[in-house]
Simulated assay, not measured.
Amino acid sequence: MLQIPATILTGFLGAGKTTLLKRLLEEPHGQRLAIIENEFGEENIDKEFLVTRSEEQIYQMSNGCICCSIRQDLREALLLLAEKRKQGELAFDRIVIETTGLADPGPVAQTFFADPAVAGLYLLDSIVTVVDARHAPEQLDKRQEASRQVGFADRLFISKSDLVSAGELRQLQERLGRINRRAPQKLLHHGKLDFTAFFDVRGFSLDAILDIDPTLLPLAAPVEHPGASLVCARAHVHDEHCGHHHHDAVSSFVFRSARTFEPEPLQRFLAALVERHGPQLLRYKGILAVSGFDRKFIFQGVHQIMGSTIGPRWKEDEKRESRLVFIGIDLPRAEIEAGLDDCLA
């Protein structure tokens, strides 16, 4: 049985998640959705009551979608919906989970990897974050939840851009790019969106090679460092190389090297890195050139959970270059740089 695709929709309070969610329910995109919310508020949505339990309520929408409000463990809600789908009681093609405005998306994402039952039924497609153009600068300054939501994102949708000047919008986009260099940014206009940008992102697919390459460096030009190339993107650095004006604890950087990795030292280093700094590592992802192998190695992780797979062969005319992106909170850049460099052949 094919796994059910799942999307995590997050964003700070008032960013416009509910507006986007309503558009998802209204637009003729051909997808039957199951929407999971932590608490289902007073929404003007036509629904036919299906199931009432003490812990969750499931509603059938007029357009064939499902909406589920939960007040217990996400795992149980996912398993319940999957079972009802299997039994033919509910029909849906994919899941969208809307988090609360103050939520950390990390534990939600980990549910899809840490629990074998959930992992067998669902495929986490992406984390989508809605950013309020008018209030995001202050939120990013004062609330780490806002920065973490940006750091986890596979796609960033900017709302309320009509309420700021072109210069303010550009500054925000540059700042978002420093926090998360791998997430493409798109503007939302009253929740309107080309939904091809929302579905089938494959942000968590280890085999989606083409999804990794273009998004590693979508914005600023690289800043070269001695030895293996490391692109500086720490937003709290302020020097002649990186003229950043905001002090974001969440930041990202990209490690590049034309030298191949030795597999055993690299495996030991990554395991130790995740054990020491897992809570700080929001997302990490990369394409690796490994000594003795003519195929690409693909890896990614969320916090302490890491996975890898063997990708396609390197082409004869292709530059064998390893590229790793790290997004996290106060990342130990020097430690990661030195450790990776020690693993090179």
Rank of each mutant, 00 (worst) to 15 (best):
Q57D: 06
V108H: 10
H246R: 06
E337Y: 10
F40E: 06
F269K: 03
A289F: 04
T18L: 05
V250E: 01
V164Y: 09
T99V: 13
R155E: 10
I35A: 05
A6C: 09
C242K: 07
F40V: 13
V128R: 02
P116N: 07
A272I: 03
D141Y: 06
I212R: 12
T18S: 15
V325S: 08
V290Q: 06
E316K: 12
E240P: 00
E55A: 12
E240L: 13
A133C: 09
H189M: 07
A228L: 04
T7K: 07
L78T: 00
D154I: 08
L33H: 04
I158K: 05
L74Y: 00
H277S: 07
Q280V: 06
G203K: 06
L324M: 14
A146P: 08
K86R: 12
E27D: 11
I158M: 03
G106Q: 10
L266R: 01
R283Q: 07
A119N: 05
L13Y: 12
V201D: 09
G167L: 13
L172E: 03
F326T: 00
G101I: 12
G30P: 04
A146S: 15
V231R: 10
S126L: 01
R202D: 15
A289I: 03
L9E: 10
R175L: 15
S147A: 15
C68F: 05
R75M: 07
T111R: 02
D115N: 13
H244G: 10
R295K: 06
